[in-house]
Design a protein around this nucleic acid. Sequence first.
RNA 1: UCCCGGGUAGCUCAGCUGGUCAGAGCGGGUGACUGUUAAUCACUAGGUCGGGGGUUCGAGUCCCUCCCCGGGAGCCA
Length: 433
Amino acid sequence: MPETTPRIAELKDHVGHTVTIRGWVTHLRSSGKVAFAVVRDGTGVMQAVFVKSAVPAETWERFKELTLETSVFVTGEAKAEPRAPGGYEILVTGLTIFGPSPIDYPIQPKEHGVDFLLDNRHFWLRSPRQRAIFAVRNEIEQAIHDFFYQRGFLRVDTPILTAAIGERSGLFSTEYFDEGNAYLAQTGQLYGEAAAAAFGKIYTFGPTFRAEKSKTRRHLTEFWMIEPEVAWNDSADNMRLQEDFVSFLVQRCLERRAAELAELERDTAPLERVQPPFHRVQYTDAVSILQQKGSAIVWGDDLGAEDEALLVADYDRPVFVMNYPKEAKAFYMKENPEDPRTVLCDDCLAPEGYGEIIGGSQREDDYEKLIHRIREEGLPEAAYDWYLDLRKYGTFVHSGFGLGLERTVAWICGLKHIRETSAFPRMMSRLRP
RNA sequence: UCCCGGGUAGCUCAGCUGGUCAGAGCGGGUGACUGUUAAUCACUAGGUCGGGGGUUCGAGUCCCUCCCCGGGAGCCA
């Protein structure tokens, strides 16, 4: 029988055969004449069993050199064993230490504080919980591409270095040759609109940056956003696309990542209910509802975090809040013909207190109204010349939205804080590792 | 930026109205143990109590100040 080097998840196909597993030691136990090392390789864990009377003296001695996170090659016969973590173990005949790990490896199999874990994020990623989160994140990313590919969208990658354009909130800037300052993109949307006029249905998927001094469980300074933009979709079409999209992502995780959601102890019942149609509430009605519930909100205010929670509490699936006052929203949103105080937009609020995961709108397609809004906001008109051209040369009805990837991952995984959804999260006071 | 909470051993924390209050568990070291599951048991090493200043006979403990972290608000995805 030839020796093989399966990954741990494949061990079930090698029972009774001699294999070599390559991985990292996560747990060590010994009791005189039998010793155990649990080994992880990213696909799972398995137990290496050392029996003093059955291994060469040299191998028995080498076991004592093992420490947490030593990288090893362990060779022996694979067998199914219900007592073993992962369900399989190897009766060791050979042990090679590839990379020793000093005894002060910081992460122990016990509770740690968040600050300490984030300082050691490069090691924290090795834990089973983190692996589960990133498997779900990966599933969502793949599902995003599948969803849009199936519907004939083109993915367009928009620039990260931009001149000042986009949202109002904080910008990261850097010197850019003789062109003055460049800013890290806060959104790809405006470029997405140009692409939609060229290709019809497009989406962007990339990192975005916000220099907001936010210290909450829902904010990162660097996050990934999915932004579809569709020619000839009005605001109602836009919301239908959103509910189909969000439901697709959730159902896909339920189908293919049940094991990881179980590892995360996620109650999947609320996720099962995420099916179209989502509830729709006009902003103006939402204000009345909230006032009846005792909120101090007045017409014109944006919904606060408490207001969002109050509103969502009545529903068992995501909620659209539609058509906000113009002043509360960005300049590019289309004026609502039925109530010009408002714009044709929607926020999609996730259930269970996860808050806004999508902001979407129909875009202003009238040249005069758009330039009026740009002036009203005091934005640098010259920077928007090409954007205005989209209305000047063959303007078109179009709409789109932005879905925050990390917020979506946090919601689907049931995480308390968004920081765990990013391998190396960037926050106000965290730039390393 | 504002409002709360916190900073004591490598890690997680306990230390009451100021007076053996320098403590525990885990981790480390040494030893025991032939099926462990964050193994167990015995012994053991390990600390400018976030920094600075003040009150006091005496300060982890009270006061001032600065720094750092967490939670929330605002802003947003």
